[in-house]
Design a protein around this nucleic acid. Structure first.
Lengths: 247, 247
DNA sequence: CCAAAAGTGTTTCCTCTACACCCATGA
DNA sequence: TCATGGGTGTAGAGGAAACACTTTTGG
């Protein structure tokens, strides 16, 4: 595509990248996917997976491509949505680089491997990033904060929670998503009633999963609904920090 | 800021613009601010106000600057939030132009005037744009659709509705915002109770506004809250199309 | 039989809707 | 005193929180 000679060629000196906040639940914790940078700047530092948008590429395909290249995550079922764009003039030492941030949600997957521009990819608990224990390159800390906020909000009024689950899942697995992402404790019985009443949220498969102990759990698949009505309101839950389900 | 000589100079050939969906309520209709383009491409066509981000400028300041330049809208009180970024490769005939779209909400203001790159600025009913009656340049129709959707959603669980009102306003003015933006009819009495119960949504000024007829209405100012709890759920309102408040 | 996890029923409370009713002003 | 719009009271429906209780498996 040749550029029409325009009156403002001086503006065509920027680069646009994508960066992806991939969230999952592992070991009963909310975790984010990070890569160790293999190139300058910030070589060796941890960062979000991402990279430059190609000259003839749209942003979302670029996000999927970078995920596939750097982290071997490319299965089609991955939930991906645009978060927001970060355009502070000095956010990248290479020059004027504007980044379009994406949020992806994945079920608990095998540990991803490194790719071309990244030495290694690994899951990191979100709290360790938000608390500053783990430092990120560029302005990626702010992007993670924004992405986690978005995910927490969207659990309320969309069916996003199912994106954290595998294709079939139990009621308890779905409830753990809410508990872990929000950091609250939820009554299993009222939760069961609420989500089964929400139209098109879940479809029973008819199958059951037998565990080591206890009654077998019914299995569900995500339904066609994308918004949740009535919503699951966070404000309605007790300020209890967490269920002491462990130990 | 000189660019550090990086390994990927071939990516630095893009331009980034901002485009702003400014919404207001005029004549009991939701309206959007459009400008008549004064330069190519699409010279003479209607478009959203916007323009190129400067070499050392962040996106949000650019949006405010373009609004001031093209539409003489620059008062500080304007609500402005980022919507999303549109990056389709062929969206602009001048070359690879990525745009960061913003949503602004304004109270009913005096009709704005044109500025440098725009011959004239004017309010247009949203329905005339969404229905295709009024054609827009570039992919701006899609941006308006996205912005209107966002505004409708945010009325539910944020205090965004007050951004449509002047600094002090009556309960009825606030209710008209919901009715016009959602296209529904709302019981005035229940609405009154609901918003006065929501913490920090409204602050009574103690003043009253005397109208031509009827009991004087109490005046309110927006409170410090930015989120609304409990939310105003759209699904709860009757499927009635509109209040027949006019003749 | 016991432990553990899944799922149901029931009570109580609280919010929301619908609507009757009262209040304050101008003409 | 009438018309017009602002604001309160209240009864009934529906949803949610709390929690006792039953079901189904493994040991």
């Amino acid at each position: 595509m040749a550029a029409v000679s325009g009156p403002q060629p001086q503006f065509f000196g920027m680069a646009v990248t994508v960066d992806v906040v991939v969230l999952t639940i592992r070991d009963d914790e909310l975790q984010v996917l990070l890569v160790e940078r293999g190139v300058e700047p910030f070589r060796g530092a941890l960062a979000l997976p991402g990279g430059f948008i190609g000259p003839d590429e749209d942003a979302e395909p670029a996000a999927r491509r970078e995920l596939a290249e750097e982290t071997a995550l490319d299965r089609g079922g991955l939930y991906l949505e645009q978060l927001r764009t970060f355009a502070a003039p000095a956010r990248d030492p290479r020059g004027r680089v504007v980044t379009v941030a994406y949020l992806a949600i994945a079920p608990d997957l095998p540990v991803p491997v490194g790719g071309s521009d990244a030495r290694a990819a690994r899951w990191q608990p979100v709290w360790s990033v938000l608390s500053g224990h783990v430092k990120l390159a560029f302005d990626h800390l702010g992007i993670v904060e924004y992405g986690v906020d978005r995910a927490r909000s969207k659990l309320e009024y969309t069916t996003l929670a199912t994106a954290f689950c595998p294709e079939v899942f139990t009621m308890t697995e779905l409830r753990r998503v809410y508990e872990v992402v929000w950091g609250v404790s939820i009554d299993a019985r009222n939760f069961h009633r609420k989500v089964t009443n929400a139209a098109d949220f879940l479809e029973p498969t008819g199958e059951r999963r037998v565990l080591e102990t206890g009654r077998p759990a019914a299995l569900y698949r995500r339904g066609p609904a994308r918004t949740l009505f009535p919503p699951m309101l966070r404000g309605a839950f007790p300020p209890v920090p967490l269920a002491d389900s462990g130990a």
